[in-house]
Design a protein around this nucleic acid. Sequence first.
DNA 1: ACCCAGGCGACGA
DNA 2: TCGTCGCATGGG
Length: 273
Amino acid sequence: MKTLQSAGCVLSSTQELNLSKTFECGQCFRWNVNKSGIYTGIAYGHSLKIWEENGLIICDAPDCDLPFWRDYFDLDTNYAAATADFTQYDYLQSCAKYGEGIHILKQEPWEALCSFIISQCNNIPRIKKIVECLCTNFGELQPSGLFSFPSAESLAVLSERDLAPLHSGYRAAYIINAARAVAEKSLDFNLLYSMDAPAAIAELSKIHGVGKKVASCTVLFGLHKMDSFPIDVWIKRALDKHFPPDFDPKALGSYAGLAQQYIFFYARSNESK
DNA sequence: ACCCAGGCGACGA
DNA sequence: TCGTCGCATGGG
């Protein structure tokens, strides 16, 4: 018999939001599931347990209100309407169907930047491992038992050698460098919010160790600018194979980034290179 | 022993 | 603006 936990609140429905797809489509690296299907994660220092139950998305948010998490899970965007623009391309249509229920999370900008710096030339299990190691070493332990993502300021005072426990290789220098840029305000996320996606990407790309792809991911996942369209090896393969030669992602409109994530998730799940 | 992983920067043509 | 290479590390 199932024990009654502390009050779970209804956040959404399984029809609107698919947890496993959203957490495992490759956009984030710190949400983990246990054997009971309960996902645990932390954002902006706030911990959350979240799961599916009888067609509903139930969550247990000890130290934060539901509006915060509704925003984090982007529950006020109409995804059905957002995908309406994708019908022009058959392959994308299939990807969107397959990825139905994915929401683009509103992650912390610094966490997104740092995580995707780590992602370069790396595989997802190891990205998760390095990110988690970064958090347990330099984040703050919360009452939930989870570690917050370490602030840029806290990393800015470290040396490259302090990051040795991460085994992040050449990326360590990139992390420190980006942390210092944020800490000394030469990189200002508030300013980036006010820019359009191409301008924000250009600005981020000025940082040593941040190229177009990492910048695009930061803008999409950290600034929630949904027209940002990161092109990695998987997307490039899909574009070459399934789209016209002269295809321009701008044709996908203001939710091109969502299309990108559908394609990435589908390709990684169904096409082995 | 090789090859690859949600790339990037430096360099040369 | 293009291709090519080295970069750390770990897993297949």
